[in-house]
Design a protein around this nucleic acid. Structure first.
Lengths: 217, 217
DNA sequence: GTCTATATTGGGATAGAC
DNA sequence: GTCTATCCCAATATAGAC
């Protein structure tokens, strides 16, 4: 056992370093070309590691996919639930606007960070891949979040039935995905302001759709 | 040259028959698993034709993809533009509700037909595939439609800037895609009524988002 | 933990007989 | 126009040296 003193905070061992390099490369390539069209060879090449390392660390291509998605999605879910809890702990009654901003909080937080070049494209990809691939991931990382937010929206919109709100939430997610896909032409970190502008427009659109104030009801 | 009298109305020659069989099989498999994950071998097998026939008729896998998408997307665009023109030829002023129903008209029309098991999934797939694959198809089949509908929506919503309306149209498309994806668990033609219900809810959501009557502006 | 080398399978595309 | 057979390459995965 040799001493591993340096950079021990970031990675616990040297093996973790290549593991991260593989995930970073896989993430980027999957965002660009999709899962099926991305080969382990291309990933290993981009990560500058050996092909066999991908199997050693992740067991299979599917295992790598799951790891790549979970790494980003878990913090996203935690941030969303945290923002919602903070909101619910306050004294004022909940508004749809505030709830949706809590739902989009991972993207607001990503402004100015390198995450802005990754998170939108990756989230859009989860919904783009065939359901058989990503359903388990969504199930684990998203179902609780969706339930909590639908419940909060129901409180903010008295009179709207639960099934109806599930539909509206569903449409809202679709708008979000479309936005995230559009605003991720791969790379480009200088468009932070533009991203923020689009995010605010997304909030306005989805708030109106969920409240439907102009409708008959 | 043997006489080819039978079924000459449907297909002009025997070659057209296998061509159609290939496209039908490819369409179904691409909807289920995506383009990259669908092999020409699987397509030829499902279509009960020889592998070489796929290359003979479409030149390459990409060529087959383009043919599959164009076959469905061209009528969709024509139906949308026709419905909009009919609307604009009327005497009453345009409403957002009527314009969006014209935009969704291919899906309203698909009710009760076998198209309902295909069209939603296929449209959703176009947006799910990597942009490099489908951008040319969207460019050719959708750009004019989008321009015409955005122009109509601008007339129906005085005071909304064009750039703003493009954003809202974009979000609207996202909601539509999400709906089409959700309501296509492959097969199942008995849920026509349910589909219609969801479609109406989609209209209500997107009308509210595009009008944004409750907002400050 | 990391590499080389390779097993094994399946992919798209084509040549040439019929 | 359609088939058989095949080329050639890329894919995932693994065994075994270091």
């Amino acid at each position: 056992m040799v001493a591993m003193s340096n950079r021990a905070e970031q990675e616990s061992s040297s093996g973790e370093a290549t593991r991260l390099k593989i995930m970073d490369a896989a993430e980027s390539l999957i965002i660009q070309h999709g899962f099926a069209a991305t080969s382990l060879r291309a990933i290993a090449n981009a990560a500058d590691v050996n092909l066999a390392a991908t199997h050693y660390h992740f067991g299979s291509k599917q295992g790598l996919l799951a790891a790549v998605f979970h790494r980003r999605m878990r913090p996203v879910g935690i941030a969303r639930l945290g923002a919602l809890s903070e909101l619910e702990a306050g004294s004022e009654p909940l508004t749809v606007d505030a709830i949706l901003k809590a739902f989009f909080v991972p993207f607001y937080d990503a402004e100015g960070s390198e995450l802005l070049t990754i998170l939108p494209g990756l989230v859009a990809r989860i919904y783009a891949e065939p359901a058989t691939l990503t359903q388990p991931i969504l199930e684990e990382e998203f179902s609780e979040v969706a339930s909590r937010f639908v419940a909060a929206l129901l409180k903010a919109c008295p009179g709207v039935p639960e099934q109806e709100m599930r539909w509206r939430f569903h449409f809202m997610v679709g708008s979000m995905i479309q936005f995230l896909k559009f605003h991720t032409p791969i790379g480009v970190a200088d468009r932070d302001n533009e991203f923020r502008v689009g995010l605010d427009k997304l909030v306005a659109f989805t708030v109106a759709g969920i409240e439907q104030l102009g409708a008959i009801e």
